[in-house]
Write a protein that binds this DNA or RNA. Structure first.
Lengths: 181, 181
DNA sequence: GGTTGCATGTAAATGGTTACATGATTGT
DNA sequence: ACAATCATGTAACCATTTACATGCAACC
């Protein structure tokens, strides 16, 4: 599942410029499970355009480059649905946070505290934004389902960190106590 | 945080061959949040060896290539701890599963059911392995903490999918019903 | 006066995967 | 007979990120 398909997905929700597609991966609903930069989006849109998957209309703007607004063609929609029917690649996550915490015994306890507190704060902020969006926005059934799953998972993660934070810090601070008793 | 640091992390838990390091990323505790292939591990070990971060000892084997067993040097350990103290890169997840499900309305309901059921099964199997490991294994405080977080998150995900599966399938099957009422 | 946001695009560098090469052993 | 496990390593290929190039407007 490459950037071209991701772009088709964003465009299936309505026409957009390359800049706006980028924002969908940066702040929007996809930001939590896919990402794409300008360097991959602009070439992808050109390729899709060449293949007739998207139509492009230039909107003139004062003192800014013309905004190129892309929209799905019917061919593009067919191709997108085909891609959705393919077997999904397995999820892949890379988390320096979890890797580092696996070795908490090599870190000063204060550092462990900071890492966990920052992460809890990040989850809290993400949850707030997602819950606001859930209350406000009339999204598709699929998008609502996925957002709900994200909320459930982030909430579990934040609660786990809050519940176990102090215990880990104590264990890292006093490794001898556990061995002795 | 590149493959070299990941290798140092595996080696901090005890000496290992390239092949065994690969297994740690395939099946072991890191498999859920980092991955690395032979094509990246073997060159990384050679580079680490050249820099004096790891020591290599060849173990002769009958009718197999010599096993090269690597172990951390004190320089390697220092370098690893330094890397752990650096600011972690933000987590990045890529999930075709969630992307596809965001567009559930484009899929036949039976396909949505299969995707969700497969995923529930995957979580159940992962949870079983992780819980067995938690009961059996005497790990470090950090590793135990991270494993516990994984269990909490996967359990929340599986429960969400079970609780909301039928509703999503119904909504995808009867989109008109929601608009009408 | 410096940063952020808008707006597009290219080229180089990165970092990694996939496939290949080799080969014996064990299980189905 | 065929696949999988053990065991190392290289090279070609890939997708994507990063940095660069350009430039105005608004905000602090």
């Amino acid at each position: 599942m490459d950037v071209k398909i991701l772009c088709l997905g964003v465009l299936s929700r309505g026409e957009a410029s390359g800049y706006e597609i980028k924002k969908a991966f940066e702040e929007g609903p996809f930001s939590h499970f896919h990402q794409a930069s300008f360097g991959s989006i602009y070439p992808a849109l050109n390729a899709l355009s060449a293949k007739g998957m998207v139509a492009c209309r230039a909107q003139a703007q004062e003192k800014r480059p013309d905004k190129k607004i892309y929209s799905l063609t019917s061919k593009g929609r067919d191709c997108f649905v085909d891609a959705l029917l393919a077997e999904p690649d397995p999820d892949r996550m890379r988390s320096d946070f979890l890797f580092i915490l696996s070795f908490a015994q090599f870190l000063p306890p204060s550092r462990v505290a900071i890492l966990i507190d920052q992460r809890i704060e990040w989850y809290r902020q993400s949850l707030e934004r997602m819950e606001t969006c859930a209350a406000t926005n009339g999204s598709s059934a699929g998008a609502t389902f996925v957002r709900g799953m994200g909320i459930a998972v982030y909430r579990a993660a934040a609660e786990y960190l809050e519940a176990n934070r102090d215990r880990l810090i104590a264990e890292v601070a006093e490794p001898a106590a556990l061995v002795a008793e």
